[in-house]
Design a protein around this nucleic acid. Structure first.
Length: 155
DNA sequence: GCCAACGTTGGC
DNA sequence: GCCAACGTTGGC
């Protein structure tokens, strides 16, 4: 079992979009970064747990918990010229980008903001908090996972 | 809206 | 294979 943090812009695909999807499950499309793709395609396993993070918004932070419920498969939005994720270098024969399905486990009662995360000393090495971090999918250690769970179960 | 940090592109 | 230019991310 591994843990991850996955960023999404709430305007584009937020926690409520996932919640509203059939079976609260949706494909994590649009990843166009090789490192993030490799995590998704190669490293993730079905059953891994995920912090759902809202980025590029008024209050960035962790808003929910989800889990990986599928193996990786080609991201079809890359084949669609109408999609904003279209990539002519990816084809069904030779797909370049992959995705997995995520199922919402729970939406948190309150957001755990990035400032709250930064204020927690046990998270000082967390990847998403590192300066200049732009990776949309980052691994979370078991220690970090537990420390973050403790932050909201206390409330 | 600003801007620092970073990944990608493409000329050489 | 280097590296400058460019585009994007994302916190503030």
């Amino acid at each position: 079992m591994q843990y991850w943090l996955m960023k999404s812009e709430p305007e584009t695909f937020g926690i409520d979009h996932l919640k509203a999807a059939p079976n609260s499950t949706y494909c994590w499309d649009g990843v166009r970064n090789y490192q993030a793709r490799n995590y998704m395609r190669d490293t993730m396993q079905v059953g891994d747990q995920v912090f759902f993070y809202h980025s590029n918004c008024k209050t960035p932070g962790i808003v929910g918990i989800a889990k990986i419920v599928s193996h990786s498969y080609p991201d079809h939005t890359a084949f669609d010229p109408e999609s904003k994720y279209y990539d002519p270098k990816s084809s069904p024969d030779k797909p370049r980008w992959f995705m997995r399905d995520l199922k919402l486990i729970k939406k948190l009662p309150n957001i755990i903001s990035i400032s709250a995360l930064r204020a927690n000393p046990s998270l000082k090495n967390m990847m998403v908090l590192r300066p200049g971090n732009r990776l949309s999918i980052t691994p979370v250690t078991a220690q970090e996972w537990r420390a973050i769970l403790a932050m909201f179960s206390k409330k």
